[in-house]
Simulated scan of single mutants.
Amino acid sequence: MYTPTGNWRKASWSVAEGACVEVAPAQGGVLVRNSKDRTGPIVRFTDAEWKAFLNGVKHGEFDSLA
């Protein structure tokens, strides 16, 4: 299991009962988990994968998936 190197964070606009994810920095990447199930599975992204994902979000790559 990967250990976060910092605190878990979620979006500031996230509502208390909303379906949100939390992210935390980890050595060489970023960890993501479900904010409603903090003891559940954690997904790890490398730095390159996370950067590619954020770049895709910024450029509307996932807009048609909604």
Rank of each mutant, 00 (worst) to 15 (best):
G6A: 09
R9D: 13
V21L: 14
E49Q: 10
A24W: 03
G60K: 03
W50Y: 11
N55M: 11
P4E: 03
G18K: 01
R44W: 10
W8D: 00
E49A: 05
P4V: 04
T5I: 13
A16N: 14
P25D: 09
A48M: 06
A24N: 04
A48T: 09
I42T: 02
E22V: 05
T3R: 10
K36C: 14
E17C: 10
K10M: 15
K51A: 15
Y2E: 10
P41Y: 00
E17L: 08
K36W: 10
E61P: 02
K51V: 12
L65N: 04
A19C: 14
G18V: 02
A52G: 04
L54K: 14
T5V: 12
D37S: 10
F45I: 01
P25S: 08
D37T: 11
L54Q: 15
R9L: 11
G56P: 02
S14F: 07
T5W: 02
A19D: 14
A52N: 05
V15M: 03
A52L: 07
A16T: 12
W13F: 06
V32M: 14
M1N: 08
E22G: 03
A66L: 09
S14N: 06
R38M: 04
W8Q: 01
H59C: 09
F53S: 02
A24F: 05
K10P: 11
E17V: 08
G28F: 15
P25I: 02
C20D: 12
G29L: 11
E49M: 05
E22D: 13
N34H: 13
S64C: 13
A26C: 15
F62G: 01
G28I: 13
M1F: 12
I42G: 00
A48Q: 03
N34F: 01
K58F: 05
A66C: 09
V21E: 05
G56Q: 01
A16C: 10
S35G: 10
F62R: 01
A52H: 07
N55I: 06
A24P: 05
R44N: 07
F62W: 08
K51T: 13
T5M: 08
N55Y: 15
G18Y: 07
V32P: 02
S12L: 08
R33S: 02
L65D: 06
M1E: 15
E61Y: 06
C20W: 09
G40F: 00
D63F: 05
A48E: 08
L65V: 06
V23R: 03
D63V: 04
G60N: 09
C20M: 14
P4G: 03
K36T: 14
G40M: 00
D47H: 03
W50E: 03
A24D: 05
G18T: 04
K51M: 09
K10Q: 14
V32D: 08
Y2L: 13
E49W: 03
P41T: 01
V32K: 02
T46W: 11
V30I: 15
N34L: 09
V15R: 12
R9C: 11
G29D: 09
